[in-house]
Nucleic acid binder design. Structure first.
Length: 173
DNA sequence: TGAATGATGCACT
DNA sequence: GTGCATCATTCAC
């Protein structure tokens, strides 16, 4: 995940103030902020701060632990590739099924129709749930990915959090 | 109304 | 490591 915090964070969509696209970031926490990036990939964020302070957590990658077949089917459904492109997805290792922010949305069939959804409502089609079990994971931090347009200190802020040992990382930490 | 630009992913070298 | 697909959003006319 990557954290984007406040209008002062010059890597954040909220850097230029409130707009039609990022208005969700200024709203209530626990809500999904889904946007289209590079004209073709969707990215899922969770709004994290109290209303009025724009902040969100970008879900950059997911390590599948169940629902693998459904995720692979969703990846196939999302791609416009044909032939060998589809074969490649068919043979993709489980750890790579959602190893990128755009791939997370493809694997979970998330698009802007899930924007603004309440992730804390158990009745929501897309929601956050408590883990059934917990385990200690080696979490490391580093600079955020794909924000070369941002000036220092934002470019180097260690606001990317990742499980060091995971094979599902979008970019090797 | 138009031009620039991405919180990417994939093929190819 | 380089190049490209592809378009919503933003801001400048």
């Amino acid at each position: 995940v990557e954290a984007y915090i406040g209008q002062e964070d010059l890597a954040s969509h909220a850097r230029a103030g409130r707009t039609a696209r990022n208005a969700i970031m200024f709203g209530s926490p626990g809500v999904a902020y889904v946007y289209l990036v590079y004209g073709m990939h969707h990215c899922l964020n969770v709004v994290t701060e109290a209303a009025g302070r724009p902040a969100a957590l970008l879900i950059r990658a997911v390590e599948p632990v169940s629902g693998v077949d459904a995720m692979r089917a969703a990846r196939l459904d999302a791609t416009r590739a044909e032939g060998s492109g589809r074969d490649r997805i068919e043979s993709l290792p489980v750890s790579r099924l959602a190893a990128g922010p755009g791939l997370v949305c493809a694997a979970f069939s998330i698009d802007r129709s899930q924007n603004e959804i309440d992730l804390c409502n158990p009745a929501s089609e897309l929601r956050l749930e408590m883990a059934t079990h917990d385990e200690a994971l080696p979490v490391a931090t580093g600079p955020r990915i794909g924000i070369s347009y941002a000036p220092e200190p934002w470019l180097s802020m260690p606001w990317r959090y990742f499980v060091r040992t995971s094979a599902a990382l979008s970019v090797v930490g």
